[in-house]
Design a protein around this nucleic acid. Structure first.
Length: 178
DNA sequence: ATAGGGATTCTC
DNA sequence: AGAATCCCTATT
């Protein structure tokens, strides 16, 4: 994930994600159907869906779903790679260890200066915010990826809250909750 | 028009 | 453990 702004370039490797589905997924913002806020979740894959949560934190998703469906992948953590100083300056807690700067969906958005203006943004185009394989990209084995229940979605009931739709790199220090 | 509540983070 | 804090969504 890369972010270019007037202040400079920052980038990090995605190390933790969560999947959110369409109308059937009681934990997903798409459960209410297409609304102004969630419209990107029903749109073209590869675009961003950014929302405000708890009245103060932004979270970034990559829209991803089969044809005719809705859904997105929440980016929960990055391992910082480029622009550490700039990331730190943007964070509420500049004191954090480097590997913790983007350890959480809202922290990540702070460090990358991503807000709702990016909702609907095409992440496949190299401009202000885009996706690209990291320089040191290597194939992952299944055993490198840990799987578990999604975080913070207890309101959706056991069936949906317990779906194993959270994925993270096993042992990675930048994961929000290892 | 209004009320309930949240895909979190930070501090105590 | 508790607060911060705004806007979305559903209901009246």
């Amino acid at each position: 994930m890369l972010r270019q702004s007037d202040d400079g370039l920052v980038a990090g490797r995605i190390v933790e994600t969560e999947a959110y589905g369409g109308a059937e997924d009681r934990a997903s913002h798409a459960r209410a159907g297409l609304t102004a806020r969630t419209a990107p979740m029903f749109g073209a894959p590869g675009h961003a869906y950014v929302y405000l949560v708890y009245g103060m934190h932004e979270c970034l998703n990559v829209v991803a779903h089969p044809p005719g469906a809705a859904g997105a992948v929440l980016l929960r953590a990055l391992e910082p790679q480029t622009g550490l100083e700039l990331m730190r300056r943007r964070r509420a807690r500049p004191h954090d260890a480097a590997e913790r700067i983007c350890a959480g969906p809202a922290r990540l958005c702070q460090a990358l200066a991503v807000d709702r203006r990016f909702s609907g943004h095409d992440l496949t185009v190299v401009d202000e915010l885009w996706l690209s394989p990291p320089p040191d990209d290597r194939k992952l084995d299944a055993e490198d990826v840990a799987v578990g229940r999604r975080i913070g979605v207890g309101y959706s009931g056991d069936e949906w809250a317990s779906r194993p739709w959270r994925f993270w790199l096993r042992g990675n220090r930048s994961v929000s909750r290892p």
